[in-house]
Amino acid sequence: MYAIATILILVAIAVGLVRAFRGPTLFDRVMAGNMIGTLTVLLVAVLGFMNGRPEFLDIALVYVLISFISTIAVLRVYVSRHDHADTD
């Protein structure tokens, strides 16, 4: 059962990766990256249960925070650049 969930999530990651490559806008890529982050968190959790070592969840917790903060960081950089471009 865990195996089926793992395969489904891996396929979802691959599909999301296609969107990250295709773009077309930066936001599409960031969105796909954010989604892949979420999927990775869940994959780590499921893998931890599958291998009988649920203490892997610490890593999943770090991922949640990291993927959120990097998404925000990309957007802040983008917005601040383009605000500058407007005011200059």
Partner: peptide, 19 residues
């Protein structure tokens, strides 16, 4: 099991939607 598989299916659905 239902929740796990259902959730995984929704994840896949979301990814296909993104594509």
């Amino acid at each position: 099991w239902i929740l796990l598989l259902g959730g995984a299916l929704f994840l896949l659905t979301g990814a296909i939607g993104v594509l």
